[in-house]
Amino acid sequence: MKILEVKNLHTSFFTHMGEVQAVRGISFDVEKNDILGIVGESGSGKSVTSLSIMGLVDQPGKITEGSILFDGRELVNLSHHELSEIRGNDISMIFQDPMTSLNPVFRVGNQIKEILKTHTNMTKEEMNERAIELLKLVNIPEPETRIRQYPHQFSGGMRQRAMIAMAISCNPKLLIADEPTTALDVTIQAQIIDLLKSLKDKQDLSIIIITHDLGVIAEICNKVIVMYGGLVMEQGTVLDIFDRPEHPYTKGLHQSVPKNVTGEKKRLIPIDGTPPDLLEPPTGCPFYPRCKHAMEVCRQKQPPLYEITKGHLAACWLHDQSAPEVEGYTKVKGEYNE
């Protein structure tokens, strides 16, 4: 059952320098209880995608094309009021930097209760109990004391957990986590990831997790989307992406990340070059300048998404019948059509 269907999403920022096309045509689905990982570098469009889903794209940005269906309901062009009812209630989001994401002048408990007040009809006592319950759920010790404290009295990891507590307070169906672990220590990272895993089961959640950290993806996700230059480069199950990647960019990512391979000493091979300029995006494949298998067609036209196996798609001309044989790239018949 599909919780979320994103079809051909385009989001741009209309700055005084011109139109910056952050998201240039993305489609994906999230099924119930999926943990979908969106991986990419800075500027790939992954954060803007998540903000677009929540309707949080600020001026001068806006969704220029496409549709986003949540539980069958169209989210694009909903009024501000309607979106407020969904946010925090049906879809929640947590952000990257827990140090600055909580309002410093209000007590943590009050911030949680405020969300409950906005979306439910609970009484004061009920909200209080629920707040304590939520803090327990996210493994914050001494919740009774903690709800009366201010954010600056929490550590980084605790603040992130408080944010998660706020996000799940109204039992949303979908939780979007934008780089939830990037700003935290490695040990705390593991705790947060475990927490998200357990919450998925306890709260019957579906999760979208956005990160540039492949390790996190491998740890928790069942499905993955790889983004670059505002487009999807490859998508599939986590096995597809890790064991049998079919896109030069994905392969490049694996090679440039130190992995825990015992015994073997492997070279780290960084991907040369820099991300594309989204003010004047390239007409062809965005990865063209950095790809060692680049062809003329890659410069001219954007490759369509080729279906390698069911559910495993890659946007690369190498999969086309007309392309030369290259080891590691499977040719497919025809194009993948929506």
Binding site: T274, A294, E296, S322
Partner: peptide, 20 residues
């Protein structure tokens, strides 16, 4: 599609789209 455009280019022949 014209098969010719499917030949792999070496890095020297690519026009870098980098803006400096």
């Amino acid at each position: 599609m014209d098969k010719q455009i499917f030949t792999i280019l070496g890095t020297d022949e690519k026009i870098s789209s980098e803006q400096i």
